[in-house]
């Protein structure tokens, strides 16, 4: 039962994450199967750069890949190490150091009011509620979002929602933040602002995006296709190869031809 499981991890695993580990993530032939379907396979790589972008077509396994990095999913084969600790050892403790920003901010908010949701992360870390709420308010003010504190998240614009979603993760001071297409619902201006704001963060970022403009200044791009690592390297090379592949497949299918699985 769930509580028993939790108690057991508490006994067996006192995972001590080494936040200075370099590389912070180490994957060796990692694979992921869900309900008998292969989602990811044969991933062997090390992550150490401060800005890593992930590209790939829909359904290629990008989202599942970053879910491995914060313990939302566990690899079904291979070995995955995060901050020097086997990711399977204590997956519940991982999100403390590896924050996750969901593609749809509506799917991330646990509490309906901005400051409640931002404070929630602090109460999760054991801070008392009043103290957490006060800290959340200060944090929101410090990040130029003080005017949003008492508002329901549902009433905010998409850009504001995304900002709140990231702040709710950021306040927990993770060492790494994973972002699953944070720009997909934003208009051009909100996207630009978010991009500049993200660029200034001291945290390491792993960002999934379809738009290369958002990957500017990134040190490394991973290209995932059909659950495998198809490209890995500096942005110019990988993105050019990715573009060529898209072009090739687009012309292959012919006008109006939808290739398998990409409606």
């Amino acid at each position: 039962m769930f509580w028993r499981k939790r108690a057991e991890t508490q006994r067996t695993a006192a995972a001590v994450f080494d936040l200075k580990a370099d590389p912070w993530a180490r994957l060796s032939s990692v694979g992921l199967e869900i309900d008998g379907r292969t989602i990811l396979q044969d991933l062997t790589l090390e992550l150490r750069e401060a800005r890593i972008g992930i590209v790939g077509l829909n359904g290629s396994g990008k989202s599942s890949f970053i879910r491995l990095l914060n313990g939302l999913r566990q690899p079904t084969s291979g070995h995955l190490e995060i901050f020097g600790v086997d990711a399977a050892l204590d997956p519940a403790a991982l999100p403390r150091h590896v924050g996750f920003v969901f593609q749809n901010p509506d799917h991330q908010a646990i509490f309906p009011i901005v400051e409640e949701d931002v404070a929630f992360g602090l109460t999760q870390l054991g801070r008392p509620r009043d103290e957490a709420l006060a800290a959340a308010r200060t944090f929101l003010v410090d990040h130029g979002a003080g005017h949003l504190a008492a508002r329901p998240i549902a009433d905010l614009s998409e850009g504001q929602k995304q900002l709140v979603a990231i702040l709710a993760v950021l306040i927990m001071q993770p060492a790494v933040i994973l972002l699953d297409e944070p720009f997909s619902a934003l208009d051009g201006l909100a996207g630009r602002r978010l991009q500049e704001w993200l660029a200034a963060l001291p945290q390491r970022l792993v960002l999934i995006s379809h738009d290369r403009a958002h990957l500017q200044g990134f040190e490394r791009i991973l290209w995932i296709e059909d659950g495998r690592l198809r490209g890995d390297g500096d942005p110019a090379t990988v993105l050019a190869a990715y573009d060529r592949e898209i072009e090739r497949r687009a012309t292959l299918a012919g006008p109006g031809g939808w290739s398998e699985g990409h409606l």
Binding site: F100, F102, Q108, I110, Q124, L125, A168
Partner: peptide, 20 residues
Amino acid sequence: DQVAEALTARGGAAGFRPEP
């Protein structure tokens, strides 16, 4: 499912236990 995942991503229903 989404709520459960969001909750797990921020330390689960019981919250993080204190750092060792």
